[in-house]
Each structure stands twice: as C-alpha cells, then as structure tokens.
C-alpha cells in the first residue's frame, strides 16, 4: 500500500510540467500577498483600538500560519493531485529529509508554531530575548522581530524559546509595570521624599492604576545613601520610558524645591535589592 503511494507520488512529481510549477508559484505569491494584506488590515484595526490592540495583534501570526498551511495543502492536494495518504507520507518524507538538512530552519519554524500556540509572548509585548529587549513587532515563522528602545529592528530566531528564558514585561496586557529608582542623601526627609515620589507617579499622565495594578513605593537603606523604588503600571507599554523620564524629572524638581538632595557617594548598581 505504502509502496504504491510512494510510486504514485514519484509519478506525480515526474509529471510536473511548467503549468504545475506556474500554478504553484501563483498560489505561493497569492498566499504571500494575502498574508501581507491580512497583517496590514489587522495591524490597522488593532491600532485603532488601544484597549484591544494586543488581543487583535495575537491573531496576526495565527492567520499567517493558517494561510501558509492552506497554501501548502492546496498546492500538494490540487496542483500535484496527491491523496490524503500520500500527503501524510510526503510530509513524513519531507520531515525526515529536512530533519537532517535544514534542522535549524525547521527548529525555528517549530518554535514559531509553539510561540503562537502557547502564547509565550505576543505581538505588542515587551520582551527580553537573549541580549535584546524591545517590543515584539512581528512573530514570523522563522524569527521574531523586536524594536528596541533605540528603534533598532532586531530579528531573533524563534528557537531561542527552546534554549533561553524569555521574559515578557506585560504578557498580553496593554499596560506594563515600570520601575524606577531614585537615590537620596542619607539624612534627607525620607517620608517627604516617598510622598513626593508617590505623588509624582500617581499624577503622571502615563500611569494606570487599578485594584490589581497598584502603585508601590519602597525604601531601601544603604550605608551612604537611601534608595527609593517606585513600581507602577504605565497605561501603554510604548510609553514605558517616557513615563520613567516624566516621573523622575518631576520628582527631582520637587526634591530640589524641598531641599532633598542626591547622595554625594558613588551609587553601586543594586539590581533588584529594593524588592
């Protein structure tokens, strides 16, 4: 039975003529165009609705996978006229062949499918992948494109999700947590400083506060200075850096007015020690 199928496949492939190649080429071009149009439309619609932007963008990679899968199926089933059994057999053969030859490429594609299905991260998320941090612009079948805060477009292979941990700052939500550290002199009025920092955060035009998204201000005591850490959610993750800058600027303006000064000592990078 399987032998017949193999023979039939070989016969079908032997019968490939310019028309078949042309038809396949047209289908591939059509799939690429359709994928581009769907991506463009979904991106446009999602940008119109800030609230549901990320949910809509989730559909983009799914629709791409679907379009390309349908195109491949259509080429094999209609153009090459393969039966279902033959398709299964062919995909097995292709799988085995590429398993040896194009392992990395297909590892990336498999990872791309895993990312789409498992929603490891989504288009619009702020993620840390390997050495890169930025907003996910596109999840392709082979690579994920990130836009870094410096506006560089980074193409990171999807298989990084198998080999490295990937951190998503917002995990599908429009808002994301932003933290900022401010260091003050050891003998500064700490209560006043914490009050000012909190007010700077809650009055920012970029802040988002809800019962599950509270504003937290923490204090850490270091040998030669004190560290304040504010944790709050920015209403749109794209404003993460503007939010930090806005809060820092207004906090320091008020600190100077109220006699709170920065420490004279050299500040060591404490990482996440404030909590």
């Amino acid at each position: 039975m399987a032998e017949d199928n193999v023979v039939s496949i070989i016969t079908n492939f032997e019968n490939i003529n310019p028309d078949t190649v042309f038809a396949s080429f047209v289908i591939i071009i059509f799939a690429i165009f359709l994928s581009k149009i769907v991506t463009f439309l979904l991106t446009k619609i999602s940008e119109m609705s800030w609230k549901y932007r990320l949910y809509l963008k989730t559909i983009i990679p799914l629709s791409k996978v679907l379009i390309y899968a349908l195109a491949a199926y259509y080429i094999l089933a209609s153009v090459f006229v393969l039966s279902f059994d033959q398709l299964i057999l062919l995909s097995g053969l292709i799988g085995a062949a590429i398993g040896f030859g194009l392992r990395n490429l297909f590892e990336d594609i498999a990872a791309g499918v895993v990312i789409v299905m498992e929603k490891t991260y989504q288009v619009g998320d702020r993620v840390q992948m390997g050495d890169y941090y930025g907003e996910v612009k596109d999840i392709g079948l082979r690579a994920t494109r990130l836009v870094t805060p410096d506006d560089s477009l980074v193409s990171a292979p999807n298989n990084l999700v198998f080999t490295q941990s990937v951190a998503s700052g917002n995990s599908g939500s429009s808002e994301m947590m932003a933290t900022l550290d401010i260091y003050i002199e050891n003998d500064a009025d700490v209560d006043l400083a914490m009050k000012i920092l909190r007010e700077a955060v809650v009055t920012s035009r970029f802040v988002y506060i809800s019962p599950t998204r509270p504003v937290v201000v923490l204090l850490n005591d270091y040998p030669f200075y004190k560290g304040l850490k504010a944790r709050a959610y920015v209403n749109d993750l794209r404003d993460e850096f503007v939010f930090r800058s806005d809060v820092t600027r207004r906090t320091w303006n008020e600190f100077y007015k109220r006699g709170i000064k920065p420490p004279k000592a050299y500040i060591v990078n404490h990482g996440n020690t404030a909590g």
Partner: peptide
C-alpha cells in the same frame, strides 16, 4: 479617553 485608558 477610555480607549487610550486615560479614563479608567
């Protein structure tokens, strides 16, 4: 304003 989440 709700859409851009300035109004909560």
């Amino acid at each position: 304003l709700e859409n851009i989440r300035l109004v909560w």
